[in-house]
Design a protein around this nucleic acid. Structure first.
Lengths: 133, 133
DNA sequence: GCAATTCCTAGTAAAATGGTAGTATAATAA
DNA sequence: TTATTATACTACCATTTTACTAGGAATTGC
């Protein structure tokens, strides 16, 4: 039941982008350095956030990344799902992997409730909330 | 963020013990068979529940396991923590592994909140609740 | 053209997961 | 007392996942 480094670093990267936002693009090199993550690993993580449509990017010299929206408009749930994948605590609950025994599974609704508790929490917090602390 | 088979099977084993309770000891062989788990793997899992003090056991012929208390008196949280270990979503939050940067970690209280959401939910549900569905 | 940057894909060591296997110990029934 | 049935304990192992590293192609600004 652990969140992997991908999810944890993704959140840190998003926070870094929010805190250092000056309108210009911020290079991964800076972000990675500030957060003590290797540039190469950061690349993979930020790529997932980018593919999810959460960033604006520019290649080439003076390129980099910046946030697409205001920090209030990102839920941490979205950030974690983009980087970690589905947050469902058991595979039966994942979006595409529906369990065939779902109907007569005695534990199903318990796990469904846990899934809801987790997602409700992470969706109730915005990036701005995390920064405010 | 997945619950492992240990946690899932532990819950199933506890439910099986509750549903088939007739005052006598129930052998692992039966439990394992009913739940489609190997006897040997079940052994490891039930051993954790036993060490946590949740069962009464008897060795030898006609031996086996039975619940120690009423199904209402077990929280699923206890069962999962006994089988899965700490449910903390990040290691910094584990009971003994306290993070030194805790104070100035911008994400700490967010994860703390997630930890609370998870534990509050699983502790709010008893074994009896799961069985009732 | 060259330096700085993102984008994409492959590889890899270490750890965790999900088991199997063997043996010792205990209780009971014959 | 011996065979049988069970738990208790410990070691082992294959597969998968995690947490990276590495290399190179494409793009842009100067």
């Amino acid at each position: 039941m652990k969140v992997s480094t991908k999810g944890r670093y993704a959140l840190r990267i998003m926070i870094d982008l929010a805190l250092n936002d000056n309108g210009k693009f911020i290079s991964l090199k800076e972000i990675a350095k500030r957060n003590g993550i290797s540039v190469k690993y950061s690349e993979q993580i930020i790529s997932m956030l980018n593919k999810a449509g959460y960033l604006e990017t520019a290649r080439g010299n003076n390129g980099g990344y910046k946030l697409n929206r205001k920090p209030e408009e990102y839920s941490v749930g979205d950030i974690l799902r983009a980087s970690e994948g589905d947050l469902a605590p058991i595979t039966c609950l994942e979006e595409d992997g529906q369990c065939s025994k779902k109907g007569d599974c005695i534990t199903f609704s318990f796990w469904e409730g846990l899934d809801r508790a987790i997602n409700d929490y992470v969706d109730s917090k915005s990036l701005a909330d995390v920064i405010k602390g």
